[in-house]
Write a protein that binds this DNA or RNA. Structure first.
Lengths: 162, 162
DNA sequence: GGGATATGGTTCAGATCTGAACTTTTTTCC
DNA sequence: GGAAAAAAGTTCAGATCTGAACCATATCCC
């Protein structure tokens, strides 16, 4: 770090716009979900990812990777979801180290109840303001950023190669 | 909410890419700042915004607006920053309700120490992966999103009208 | 076989964040 | 002038998150 190359005006502006956009969006989603369904966005994601999995179940490690959570955070979150009756833990018979988290029927119902409002909020803030071409170009840029942020491509939003 | 319009494949992909990008970026910044300077990004922002203000001081309300923090969160954060000796609180003589937060010399020094590494991280993850044209287009999209997320334009990254 | 290492998860301690309640001071408005 | 409302912050209680330490099981490799 000999000689810092500071951000010029356009870069500053872009950086702050990105910061504000991501914070405002995640706050809007959290507020909507908390208000209408009594769960933070992180918990919604857990339910959603489980619901898309075969058998509506995943090991804790798989689930942590998909929702990008630390083992610790996920463990706490699943504790709450289990208290709510939305997820059930069980031990794997093959490998007794691993814990399987399974979406309960009540959890699936809660997710179905929450989804429409959540999707509407995402659409309202993320897609309604952008034209289709803008969205495509925007996604291209995000994938370029992901290449740097996630060099091993662990994120479950792999770039589709044409 | 009669009939939900779900996200199509491209929208799903865009939405997940955005989620991952913003989370990975904010984690990368937090990790770098915590490791090299012992502060989370939110605290860095407070120091940075104070340093750019006349007299390196702002009222708590002004500061909360600029860094987009709730009054409560800001109050907690300034407690920590005061314990670290980086910020000093004082009462306004005119309006005895308001508290003024002022960056100390030690706080300014800590900021100067932290800035190069932080800027390098932002540049590395946000600007190196994008061409200049991509960045400009990306910023345009962000401003379109901000129009919906921040209808009263409270964010300090006002769209420049040509 | 059996110790060293790796893997899967949880727990612990502590930091941060959230929303609501509260205190103090100022402004508004008869 | 004085009660009611607003504004500025703080504090309280509780939720969530973080990183490190920890336990249990499984795999590796002589």
């Amino acid at each position: 770090m000999t000689d810092t190359r500071w951000l010029d005006a356009d870069e500053q502006e872009t950086w702050r716009a990105f910061l504000w956009t991501s914070r405002l969006l995640s706050e809007a989603l959290d507020r909507q979900l908390q208000r209408d369904s009594g769960m933070p966005h992180a918990y919604y994601m857990i339910l959603a990812m489980l619901s898309e999995s075969p058998g509506r179940a995943l090991t804790m490690t798989e689930l942590a990777a998909i929702v990008h959570s630390s083992p610790s955070r996920l463990s706490h979150a699943v504790n709450r979801l289990e208290e709510a009756g939305w997820v059930r833990r069980s031990k794997d018979a093959e490998d007794r180290r691993t814990t399987i988290a399974e979406l309960t029927d009540a959890g699936f119902a809660a997710l179905e109840e929450a989804a429409p409002g959540h999707v509407a909020e995402v659409r309202r803030h993320l897609f309604d303001p952008l034209s289709r071409e803008q969205m495509t170009e925007f996604r291209r840029s995000l994938h370029a950023l992901l290449a740097s942020l996630d060099p091993h491509r662990e994120a479950p939003c792999a770039e589709k190669r044409p």
